[in-house]
Design a protein around this nucleic acid. Sequence first.
DNA 1: TTTTATTTATTTATTGATAAATAAACTGGA
DNA 2: TCCAGTTTATTTATCAATAAATAAATAAAA
Lengths: 172, 172
Amino acid sequence: MSNKEELASNRKTQILEAAAELFAEKGYYKTTTADVARLVGVTQPYVFHFFKSKEELYLAVLQKAKEIILYAFSSTEATMEDLQKSMGNAFEGLLKSYRNEMLLMMTAFSIPEPAIRNYVRAGFDEVYERIRGAFSDAGITDFENQARKFIGCGLLITMAEVLQLPNLFLKD
Amino acid sequence: MSNKEELASNRKTQILEAAAELFAEKGYYKTTTADVARLVGVTQPYVFHFFKSKEELYLAVLQKAKEIILYAFSSTEATMEDLQKSMGNAFEGLLKSYRNEMLLMMTAFSIPEPAIRNYVRAGFDEVYERIRGAFSDAGITDFENQARKFIGCGLLITMAEVLQLPNLFLKD
DNA sequence: TTTTATTTATTTATTGATAAATAAACTGGA
DNA sequence: TCCAGTTTATTTATCAATAAATAAATAAAA
């Protein structure tokens, strides 16, 4: 496979990665397809060669983010270790490792496009189930409430991160 | 004061209320100034007679929401009663009483416009302080962590409300 | 008390910008 | 030559925002 071909076959991946970065940083509406294209180094219409709409691109980004998050919770070791200490630490670890994905997931619920809303609803269900399962497997008592608490904690930390409110919202 | 005058002096208020409703429901970007005008029953450019930009309108809406929320926490009785039971119940009471304001406040952090972000940052600081104070006054031990927990709980419930995930995210 | 002037409330018409999306053309290597 | 990968050129729609005009209400003057 030649250099050019390799790049070409990566284009879709590059676009997905650039989009993840930008959507996480600037949100769905303030990120333009031109922004994404510029970051990859291609022209704006070329994005539509891979994704038939901006919305579809966003959904693809979100799907990948969800998969990464689900995977992070299937290898529970690291997270659970931190959990002994505190949920805040555990989530901050995840936020550090999967920053874009976490920001994406935690802010996506406020996007009112119907297709996105449906996807986010289903996705959160799935993630919640996985966290619940992981907590249960780890022998955590009251795992249902703890799972909810963990997501609430994640939302809080995400908000503090987005707003850059470091002093106020630390710990668990 | 004549009927017309009364209406006229209410226009700004009517616009603020319509905007609060729509921004809470459809978010900042999907709410157009034409939507707001239509709900009030005036023409789109007339909105700009009262607010020099859409952003300024949103900030005005947010300010009022913040004031209402701050006020809700200065009359602590009801909230604190519920708190004995659970945070979830307490927040759901607030969400019922001040739906638009709560939705506004809890989703505003994901709007990337710099002026809005700054306002939301400062506003959350203020609200957090107030909650902390109310918890402290009510003699709640560990009031700092409890205040954070309360906001996290609020974010979770707001998300569940927005996404209409009733079954999964109940209780505290 | 009617007329005239002035202010206040609101609309119509328009602009300018931005951004998503489509279509058609180009280019360089097998 | 052909084709995948990519660009240029263009369209269409949507909105925020401005400017100018109109209508209604109030006050002042005759």
